[in-house]
C-alpha cells in the first residue's frame, strides 16, 4: 500500500440529539486511533432534535475515507460530509485571548489586535481579553504575535464549517 501524505480534513455530520451520541462519535475516534484536532457540537434544527458536529482530523486520504465510512455506520448519524474533499468550504473559529502586560508591549498588543480586527471584550489596567474570529491559521498567527506581548490564556471554540455556494450538508 503506498502511503499518501497525511493532511487535515474537516468532517461535518448531523446526528440525532440523543444522550450518548457524542460519546459514540468520540469513542469511534479514540477506539480506532483517529485523531481529533478540534470538535464542535450544537443543535442546529428548529426543534433542537438534530446536532451538527464539525471535526477537524488528520490522516491520509484513505484514512479520511475510512473515518467517514465508520461514522456513517453510526445509527443516530444521518449525514456525513468530508468538507475538505467535497468542494470549497468556509471554516471559522473564535478565540478569546488574554494578554497581561503594560507599557510598550500593551500598546503593541492593542495595535496588532486592531490590525487583526480583534475586539477587546474585556479591558483592565493590566489586561485585555481579545475576541477574534477567523480561520484557524489567522487565530494561530495572532496568538503567536501575542506570545511575547504578555499572552496569558487562550480559549478557542474549534471550527464551525459549512460548504460554499447553494449546496447544503443535506444535498451535497
Amino acid at each position: 500500500m503506498q502511503q499518501e501524505a497525511p493532511g487535515s480534513a474537516v468532517i461535518s455530520l448531523l446526528v440525532d440529539n440523543e444522550s450518548g451520541a457524542l460519546g459514540r462519535i468520540i469513542g469511534l475516534f479514540s477506539g480506532r486511533g483517529y485523531n481529533i484536532r478540534s470538535l464542535t457540537v450544537a443543535p442546529v434544527d428548529e426543534h433542537g432534535l438534530v446536532s451538527r458536529v464539525n471535526i477537524v482530523t488528520t490522516g491520509t486520504l484513505s484514512d479520511i475515507r475510512q473515518i467517514k465510512a465508520q461514522i456513517e455506520r453510526l445509527v443516530p448519524v444521518s449525514r456525513v460530509v468530508d468538507l475538505s474533499s467535497e468542494g470549497p468550504h468556509v471554516a471559522r473559529e473564535m478565540a478569546l485571548i488574554k494578554v497581561v502586560s503594560s507599557g510598550e508591549p500593551r500598546t503593541e498588543a492593542l495595535r496588532i489586535a486592531e490590525a487583526f480586527r480583534a475586539r477587546a471584550v474585556d479591558t483592565t489596567a493590566s489586561s485585555f481579553v481579545f475576541e477574534l474570529t477567523g480561520s484557524s491559521d489567522k487565530l494561530d498567527s495572532f496568538i503567536e504575535l501575542m506570545r511575547p506581548l504578555g499572552l496569558a490564556e487562550v480559549s478557542r471554540t474549534g471550527i464551525a464549517a459549512i460548504c460554499r455556494g447553494p449546496q447544503t450538508i443535506q444535498n451535497n
Binding site: 500500500m1 484513505s62 475515507r65 475510512q66 465510512a69 456513517e72 455506520r73
Partner: peptide, 11 residues
C-alpha cells in the same frame, strides 16, 4: 454490505 470494510485494509 458494509462500505466501511471496503478499502479498509487492502485497497
Amino acid at each position: 454490505i458494509d462500505p466501511s470494510q471496503i478499502n479498509k485494509i487492502i485497497p
